[in-house]
Design a protein around this nucleic acid. Structure first.
Length: 277
DNA sequence: CTTCACGCCTGTCAGC
DNA sequence: TGCTGACAGGCGTGAA
């Protein structure tokens, strides 16, 4: 569900509620979500530790705790983190609940239960393979046109697949890849290593613009996604192609097409994003 | 090394 | 109305 803009929005909405809070207890209703250490140790280590700062890296949320521990949460498809003040009713469907000393709580719920939670020392974070191998993020200093050009040159696959690879760019998912390609006017099945310099520059600018607007809109709420206070995002109103099969392209009016590329639902405008034959 | 199909889970929705 | 199957925004694994 959540991609970089959604995770960033959740982090922003949670910081003022959780930073500085001391964990009093942890309820674990679905132990298999805890990937490291054992659920028993996970709980025992968290109890009495304070959340110092909450940071985000791509789609990972990192809660830096006292004594060098870091709680790492990846929401995958349907994970949700919701801050609940002590005087409001608990979510009985929550899979993991972090109770704070002041009576407030942070609830993790997850319809498809594909999310992952870890508790590691700050110098052990590379044990999470996906976190250790993340590429630079959109809008970061390292994500330059030159970087994108060099990386695309090494890839023979289709653009759609390459842009979803978190080792190349950290934080893009299915929605923002489709939107980036639409705004750059590039067909999702173009070969990554066959783009002109001008097309690469356009793609780079489009990725940054889409992610920046996505964050500015508080993310994209198509179904499940809410921020840490339960608010919906509004970027769904600005989507050009994603979820708009059969609707008119905002640029040329052609009907948006949906296909499957690299096993993922893929939306594009057949006129603005022509595939050179 | 890259590329790609598949499995993981469950809720929702279209079609019958 | 009730059932069935396809599908869903992510990622890790393993095979080629």
């Amino acid at each position: 569900m959540p991609e970089l803009p959604e995770v960033e929005t959740i982090c922003r909405s949670l910081r003022c509620h959780v930073e500085g809070k001391v964990i009093r207890d942890v309820e674990i209703h679905l132990p298999r979500l805890i990937k490291w250490p054992s659920p028993e140790d996970f709980r025992a280590i968290l109890v009495d530790r304070r959340i110092r700062v909450l940071q985000r890296r791509a789609k990972y949320m990192l809660f830096y705790l006292t004594d060098g521990w870091v709680l790492v949460i990846h929401l995958r498809m349907t994970g949700r983190l919701y801050f609940r003040s002590g005087d409001t009713p608990a979510d009985i469907a929550a899979k993991v609940v972090f109770h704070f000393n002041d009576g407030d709580a942070l609830e993790y719920s997850d319809a498809r239960t594909l999310g992952t939670l870890y508790l590691l020392r700050h110098n052990e974070l590379e044990r999470i393979y996906g976190l250790a191998t993340l590429g630079p993020e959109p809008l970061s200093e390292q994500f330059t046109v030159g970087y994108l050009k060099d990386e695309l040159a090494k890839r023979k696959g289709k653009l759609k697949m390459v842009l979803l690879d978190q080792r190349l760019i950290g934080g893009l998912g299915n929605i923002y890849v489709d939107e980036s390609l639409a705004r750059a006017g590039l067909h999702p099945e173009r070969k990554a290593n066959a783009l002109s310099d001008e097309e690469i520059a356009r793609l780079h600018a489009s990725i940054n613009a889409v992610i920046e607007k996505g964050i500015g809109s508080g993310g994209t709420t198509l179904r499940d996604y809410r921020d840490g206070e339960g608010n919906m995002g509004s970027f769904q109103e600005e989507l050009c192609v994603y979820g708009r099969e059969g609707e008119a392209c905002p640029v040329c009016g052609s009907a948006i097409v949906k296909t499957t590329v690299a096993g993922r639902g893929t939306h594009y405008c057949p006129h603005c994003q022509r595939k050179p034959s």
